[in-house]
């Protein structure tokens, strides 16, 4: 229909640790488990490599949702990295409201290298949540203008 408003396509950044979640995402691909193309993955060595600044930067640049995926607690390739990630994100998320970002736009999930199905399901669910929230407008004024 010509007059219909173009459906909202959220911009979603997913940080995936190299050892578990990135491999889980690969497995989702190998098994042809579809999830929306709105999700773009950035590979990091470990979830503990993700600086809260990266997440704020993504929102600042117009991302509608940011998800961080790491190895399950206890399974971190670097022994304790995901525990650091969990603490840091808990702290960051507790302040998001104050920054003008809905909490639901961020998420931490543990996805192992064997959980392709969980990766796809997680992404489907997250994209649905973010799509329901709509465009991340509350931060607009703070955004860097190109």
């Amino acid at each position: 229909m010509p007059n219909e408003v173009k459906a909202f396509k959220p911009k979603i950044v997913a940080f995936c640790c190299n050892w578990c979640s990135y491999a889980g995402a690969d497995l989702a691909g190998t098994n042809r488990l579809a999830y929306p193309a709105d999700v773009k993955i950035i590979r990091v060595p470990c979830s503990c490599r993700v600086n809260p600044m990266f997440i704020l930067r993504a929102f600042q640049r117009g991302a509608d949702g940011v998800i961080l995926c790491g190895c399950h607690p206890g399974d971190c390739h670097y022994t304790t990295g995901n525990y650091y990630a969990r603490r840091r994100m808990t702290l960051l998320f507790s302040m998001l409201d104050f920054l003008g970002i809905e909490k639901e736009r961020t998420r931490v999930e543990w996805v192992s290298a064997a959980e392709g199905a969980k990766f796809a399901a997680t992404m489907n669910d997250f994209v649905a949540t973010v799509t329901a929230l709509g465009e991340n407008k509350r931060l607009e004024d703070l955004r860097c203008k190109e």
């Binding site: 060595p45 503990c48 809260p52 600044m53 930067r57």
Partner: peptide
């Protein structure tokens, strides 16, 4: 081993990870 835990812990931004630097990820 290059996990990068220290890069985030560093309050002055002195610590960076080669190959996955702050500027590269940004």
């Amino acid at each position: 081993q290059g996990c990068g835990a220290c890069t985030v812990a560093c309050p002055s931004g002195a610590m960076d990870l080669k190959g996955f630097s702050n500027s590269q990820i940004m």
